[in-house]
Design a protein around this nucleic acid. Structure first.
Length: 471
DNA sequence: CTATGGCACGGATT
DNA sequence: AATCCGTGCCATAG
């Protein structure tokens, strides 16, 4: 018995470490899921009444005064105010949607995709076709693409395949245009058809979409031009047109980056894990940093559960004790996660304050290792804490926390600005020269690399005077 | 001949 | 230990 007990506790301390690490790397929304599932599985856990600040009505951390209202009036301290902010509502209300991001096409009416599409077209179909349409619409994946083939649908419903194909063609013309397509190529071709009814499209566009999307995403314009017997400039035009007018994943709320179709979902961030905003417009006032903790109230062990545990005997007690321990563990780990994040953010925000207030050019160079050393924790702790998290900056943009460690962002924005302002296209070496005059020494090859990261075409494909930018 | 992209190497970072 | 990043060299397109 004694042995099993000690084994038990040693097990739980190693579990403690493991869980702290996992929790640390979780996004706020992931943590929310974790808490919810834990809450419904573990009777020992409970969520208690939230605390609100009497002054501002803000939700408060589990203990202590309101971190904002309790600040002394003379805010001479330039240190950022970092605090943990429990607010589950953040994730459900979406009240802090950044204005820059376009609205999702069909959340406004909280319809799911199949219903949304069906409503558009239902009036034009007879009852029979409606059934078929509904069937088809229920066989879409997350991107709104068919998970089945017209042939299968036809066989299943004993219909003529041509009839089905016809119906699908009509569905594809619904908003979001290209839904029900077989894939990105199909969807984009449909969008082209519809665009063409109103305005001409550049030559070769169809051919490029049909056969050269991968090449296009790698900016191999010359190669495409060669294969189609076109000029590189023509293909550059096509590329620009495609970036601006076509959407390979019409059913996604918004498409991030055509250039990386495989991983573009990483580009769209719905809810940040951390908010940073100035306490007031006065730049001498500190920044406020809210670390979102997705909880409506405070998580704690149910005292009733604890009481009951004392009274019941052996058989079920073991199981209950386990629950109790798991609950304690979870709470402790969440606290540690919060604490680690808080320490990290204090350093990070203080150090990168110029960037937060001033913009991309002001980013100071920094590595995770430096921060780890300052905080006296293992580098991997910082890595975990940073990875996957997103921050909303005062300008309402949501960015990955990792850009705080991006060494090349200032240089890249400088290059971008330079090209945006250029009269005649600047060659990479000219850019390199200008940069070195400004005290930034990087190789010509690196300029080229940054330029392509920014999605800017090489000099000989850019128009004089006006610049060529996409997305 | 010049400008640029590909490949790959070495060093730093995670 | 694995990965990322800046860079040099070389081939190729213009």
């Amino acid at each position: 018995m004694l042995q099993s007990q000690s084994q038990h506790t040693s097990l739980s301390t190693s579990a403690h470490l493991a869980q702290t690490m996992t929790l640390l790397s979780l996004t706020s929304s992931e943590l929310l899921q974790k808490i919810e599932s834990e809450l419904s599985n573990n009777p020992a856990l409970e969520m208690i009444e939230e605390r609100r600040c009497p002054m501002c009505g803000r939700l408060l951390p589990p203990s202590g005064p309101c971190p904002i209202c309790s600040q002394p009036k003379n805010l001479e301290t330039s240190e950022p105010i970092v605090f943990i902010s429990p607010r589950e509502d953040f994730y459900t209300s979406g009240g802090l949607q950044p204005e820059d991001l376009p609205e999702e096409p069909f959340t406004s009416e909280s319809l799911d995709l199949p219903t949304y599409v069906l409503r558009q077209i239902a009036g034009d179909l007879d009852w029979d076709e409606n059934l078929l349409a509904a069937f088809i619409l229920n066989h879409l994946d997350d991107d709104g693409f068919l998970t089945t083939t017209p042939l299968e649908v036809a066989r299943y419903h004993h219909r003529d395949p041509g009839e089905i194909a016809d119906l699908i063609n009509r569905l594809k013309r619904c908003e979001p245009i290209g839904v029900c397509a077989e894939g990105p190529v199909d969807a984009m071709l449909t969008q082209l058809d519809i665009l063409e009814e109103n305005a001409p499209i550049p030559p070769y566009t169809r051919e490029v979409v049909r056969n050269f999307l991968p090449k296009l995403s790698q900016h191999h314009y010359a190669e495409i031009a060669h294969a189609l017997c076109a000029t590189t400039a023509q293909i550059a035009k096509v590329a620009e047109f495609i970036y601006e007018n076509l959407n390979p994943f019409p059913a996604r709320s918004h498409w991030g980056d055509v250039r990386n179709p495989t991983e573009e979902e990483n580009q769209v961030f719905h809810q940040p894990d951390i908010l940073i905003y100035p306490l007031s417009d006065n730049p001498s006032n500190p920044l406020v940093v809210e670390i979102i903790l997705p909880m409506r109230g405070t998580l704690r062990v149910n005292p009733l559960f604890k009481e009951t545990l004392k009274q019941i005997n052996d058989d079920k007690a073991e199981e209950w004790r386990e629950d109790l321990e798991k609950a304690n563990l979870l709470i402790k780990c969440i606290q540690q996660r919060s604490n680690a994040l808080k320490m990290l953010l204090e350093k990070l925000v203080a150090y990168q304050e110029p960037y937060i207030r001033g913009g991309d050019k002001e980013l100071r160079s920094l590595t995770r290792a430096q921060i780890a050393k300052e905080l006296d924790v293992h580098e991997s702790t910082i890595s975990r804490a940073v990875s996957g998290k997103t921050v909303q900056l005062p300008n309402r943009r949501i960015i990955p926390l990792s850009v705080f460690f991006d060494r090349s962002l200032p240089q890249r924005t400088l290059i971008r600005e330079m090209i945006d302002a250029e009269e005649d296209p600047l060659s990479d070496s000219e850019i390199q020269q200008r940069l070195s005059e400004m005290g930034i020494n990087i190789a010509r090859r690196t300029v080229a690399k940054y330029r392509s990261i920014e999605g800017i075409l090489p000099a000989h494909l850019r128009q004089p005077n006006r610049s060529a930018r996409s997305a």
